[in-house]
Amino acid sequence: MKTDQFRRELRGWLETHDLTPPPTSGLDAEVAQLARVRSELWQAGWMRYGWPRTVGGLGGPSALRAVLGEEIATRDLAEPGIWSMVEVLVPTLLDYAPAALAAEMVPRLLSGDEQWCQGFSEPGSGSDLASLSTRAVMEGDTWVVSGQKVWTSLAQYAARCVLLARTGGPGHDGISAFLLDMDSPGVTVRPLRTMHGVDEFAEVFLDDVRIPASRLLGAPGDGWRLAMDLLPHERSTCFWHRIAHLYSRLDRLLADGCEPDADALGTAWLDLYTARCRSVATQRRLALGDRLGPETSVDKILLAGAEQRLFDTARDLLPGTVELDAGTPWRTEYLYSRAATIYGGTAEIQRNIVARRLLGLGKE
């Protein structure tokens, strides 16, 4: 199906199927709404487009998934950050999991039956992922894992975790990846309160957790390569969804009667437009089957700047709303935007990647 036809028919379906979130707020409600939306879209077929038939999909280009997420984000039917987890984890399973495991597990995520998480960062090993210390030791046909993860989004809701652990010596080649069942004995999850008041992140403690050898993703030592392949997916279709969400917030800023500052509004719009233009190029490369790489750091830099600019503009043009009204969504989203230059790789790390790997400027 072509994207124009897909968008037209999807919009028609959404007009006749009410997926409006309930009036309840909070992370529990957001996760429940996500499951509901995915379930209905899966049953109607929309969630299957753009994914291979081997995992329950209906085929077609990846652009169909971008359109679906854009329509969901524009209508505020699901929070775009947690909606987009499928765009990170499903391609990883397709590339690294045994075919039978991917065929069994991927439909559970796409259909909303399960939520998954990503166990990469550790205390002291955030942006410096290669220094992670969580260790997995082979015992018979089982890997025994011990260590700690942190900043693990939605771990308290997750049934599975794409987990990195050290199976060899120091450095990149000693890291392997696993698909962990989060209800395994020895897994403890403790949510973390962020400054915007949402327990989105969690610590995950792993105490002699046993993972079957069949849950190894790729071969031993493939964990670093998996991570380098996964991270660009965080900046591809996910960013398209995020940009659509931010455009809706710009519309809301105007609807809320902000001060008519054409320069400030124009600058915020231009930053979003620039990020969207860059994301278009990334979507086209993805549709052509190109492997995404360090060039997606440019996408990350542009989107983080655009997001912070937008909410800075909201703070300035809706005086007192962010500072004084604790109940407004503007306050929560403004505080969340402060992390845009930190999560998923800090702005400093992204600029270093651009300098070294794209511009060839070396380490100094």
Rank of each mutant, 00 (worst) to 15 (best):
L270D: 12
L254R: 12
D263I: 03
L254Y: 07
R242T: 10
Y273E: 08
S236Q: 11
H233Q: 15
R242H: 14
R249G: 05
L253N: 07
D251N: 11
H245C: 09
L231V: 13
T237R: 14
S236G: 12
A275G: 09
H233T: 14
A255M: 13
H241A: 08
T237N: 14
R249A: 08
G266E: 04
A262Y: 03
A255Y: 10
R249L: 07
T274L: 08
L246T: 04
R276C: 04
A255H: 14
T267G: 04
T267I: 01
R235H: 13
W240P: 06
C277P: 07
E234C: 15
Y273S: 05
H245S: 12
T274S: 10
G257S: 06
C238N: 15
H245F: 13
D229I: 06
L265K: 00
T274Q: 09
T267H: 06
R276Q: 11
C238S: 15
R235M: 08
T267R: 05
D271V: 00
L246P: 07
P232V: 06
D261G: 05
L265H: 02
R249K: 10
T274H: 07
L231N: 11
L253V: 02
P232H: 12
I243M: 08
D229V: 08
E259M: 02
P232S: 10
C277A: 10
S248N: 08
C258D: 06
P260R: 00
Y273C: 02
E259C: 01
H233G: 09
W240Y: 11
A264L: 04
R276P: 07
W240G: 11
L270E: 11
P260C: 03
H245W: 14
W269R: 07
D261M: 01
A275T: 02
E234W: 08
L250S: 04
I243N: 10
T274R: 06
R252I: 00
H233L: 12
T267F: 03
T274M: 06
E234M: 13
R252G: 11
D271T: 03
F239Y: 15
L272H: 02
D261Y: 03
I243R: 07
S236A: 15
C277L: 10
D263Y: 05
E234D: 15
P232D: 13
L270C: 05
T237L: 15
E259F: 02
C277K: 09
T267M: 03
A275Q: 01
A275R: 00
